[in-house]
């Protein structure tokens, strides 16, 4: 942009060209300021995330799936055991497997913070969206 300010530049044509160049310079300066701000913000964001976020994402995925599957398996085992003890052969398994599924979904909702932990309202009022989701 410094070449444009030189007299006899490629697009300099009298007084009108002078104001045109001034506007172009200010636009160029504003564009450079915007670029600098965007670069600073972008580096700040990537510095905050990257490797730590990756590990937290893996940990969250494994935690959520294992909590869900644990609920279903515990429900199935409980239903099978109750069936064997009480002799109500299909119905205990059916009811407790569905209850285990509901408990697994509730586990997921609790660990993501969509539903408050039981007793969290009494212990700490602002611990609903806990520190396990990285926010």
């Amino acid at each position: 942009m410094d070449e444009k300010r030189r007299p006899g530049g490629p697009d300099q044509e009298g007084a009108g060209g002078e104001t045109e160049n001034g506007r172009a310079d200010s636009l160029e300066a504003r564009r450079q300021r915007l670029d600098a701000e965007l670069l600073a913000r972008r580096t700040a964001e990537t510095g905050r995330g990257s490797q730590k976020d990756d590990r937290q994402g893996y940990a969250l995925a494994v935690k959520l799936s294992s909590e869900f599957i644990a609920g279903v398996i515990v429900g199935a085992v409980l239903g099978y055991g109750i069936d064997r003890l009480a002799g109500t052969t299909p119905w205990g398994l059916i009811v407790f497997l569905i209850l285990g599924f509901c408990a697994g979904v509730l586990n997921i909702l609790r660990s993501t913070g969509a539903v408050a932990q039981p007793g969290a309202a009494r212990a700490k009022p602002d611990s609903g969206r806990g520190d396990d989701d990285g926010n």
Partner: peptide, 19 residues
């Protein structure tokens, strides 16, 4: 979505252990 998968797992478990 997972509920429907659990239903098919339920049918499989019923066939294996409860029928």
């Amino acid at each position: 979505t997972e509920a429907l998968g659990i239903f098919s797992l339920l049918v499989a478990l019923l066939l294996l252990y409860a029928v």
